Amino acid sequence: MSLNSIFQYFVPKDKKVFFPLFEQAAANVVAMSTVLVEAVNSLDANAREEMFKQIDKLENKGDELTHQIYLELGKNFITPFDREDIHSLATAIDDVADYIQGSANRMSLYAIEEYTEPIRKLSELILQGSVELEKAVRELKDLKNVRNIADSCIRINSIENQADYVFDRAVADLFLYEKDALRLIKYKEILAALETATDMSEDAANVMESILVKNA
């Protein structure tokens, strides 16, 4: 067997095996955040609960994709970029999905009746960040459009900064004006989960920026 044949044995049968999985995972996060925005803007409580169930199903799909990436990482000796970065990116994308689901679960379990402007705004920012995340992930497969990836990462960082401001202002208002301690706790936990989802998008952006630097 030639040296080239041996080398080819270790290369994934689909040379780009990781990229379709990353793209599916990122697209799944966009789908989840789209449903989240629809849910927090819905006036129909029953429809909203169905949307929350849909988010649960999508999160399970995301877990399966993340698990598949980890399996491929264990099976393939040759990877398109650092193994640590593949693992970190998969984990960060999965974390975005986890916190979207966590936010939706809290809204459902706490049976909140008012979907406030900060909740709607943070949900919209999660969607914006998810869209940028998907754009950047789709450019990773050839790294020809480095500028596009970098621009999306910058926008994700900006979105996270906006989410920080919305969260801080909303929590400050809760402490200033909310007299019901139980209601305050419920809303603070929901807002925190929503804001953390944007943090996880920023973590994914940081990993992609690291990949760009290492492959420049």
Rank of each mutant, 00 (worst) to 15 (best):
A97P: 12
L140C: 05
N148Y: 14
D95R: 14
N157L: 10
I190Y: 00
K75G: 02
E160H: 10
T116D: 05
L191D: 02
V207W: 12
I86D: 08
S210A: 14
F81C: 09
A97N: 13
V171K: 03
I78T: 04
D94T: 05
M107Y: 01
K75P: 06
V137K: 07
Y177W: 06
D168Y: 10
A204P: 10
Y177T: 06
F77L: 07
S88H: 08
E132P: 02
I211H: 01
Y115G: 11
D168N: 15
E202W: 09
A197F: 15
A204W: 13
S88F: 06
M200L: 11
N145S: 12
G129M: 14
E72D: 04
V146L: 09
E209K: 14
Q162A: 00
V96W: 05
I190V: 02
Y110P: 06
S158W: 01
N148F: 13
A90W: 11
V131C: 08
L140N: 03
L182N: 02
T91F: 13
L133C: 11
Q68N: 09
P118N: 07
L191Q: 01
Y110K: 04
Y165V: 07
E84L: 09
K179A: 07
M107T: 04
D199M: 14
R120Y: 04
E113D: 06
F175Q: 06
E84T: 10
G129P: 07
R169N: 07
C153H: 08
V96F: 11
S130D: 01
D94M: 03
M200T: 06
A170C: 00
I78S: 09
Y110S: 00
T91W: 13
E195C: 14
N157K: 01
E84Q: 14
V171A: 05
N145M: 15
K179V: 03
S210C: 13
A192R: 11
A163R: 08
E189I: 05
L71S: 13
Y110A: 04
K144L: 13
Y187H: 03
D94H: 00
Y165Q: 06
L191V: 03
R138T: 08
E114Y: 02
S123M: 03
D199H: 12
I126S: 01
R120K: 06
A97F: 08
A193T: 03
D173S: 12
Y165S: 11
V171T: 01
N76K: 11
T198S: 06
V137F: 10
I78G: 04
L133V: 14
E160S: 10
E113A: 12
K135E: 13
Y99E: 00
A97C: 09
T196D: 11
I154A: 12
A197W: 14
H87K: 15
I100V: 12
I86C: 01
G102E: 00
T198Y: 01
L71Y: 15
S123Y: 01
L73K: 14
V166W: 10
T116K: 05
D203T: 01
S158R: 02
L194N: 07
E139C: 00
Y115K: 00
A204H: 15
A181D: 07
I156H: 01
V207Q: 11
Y115A: 15
L127S: 01
D173L: 03
V171E: 04
I185R: 05
A205V: 12
E124Y: 12
Q68S: 15
S201N: 06
K188G: 03
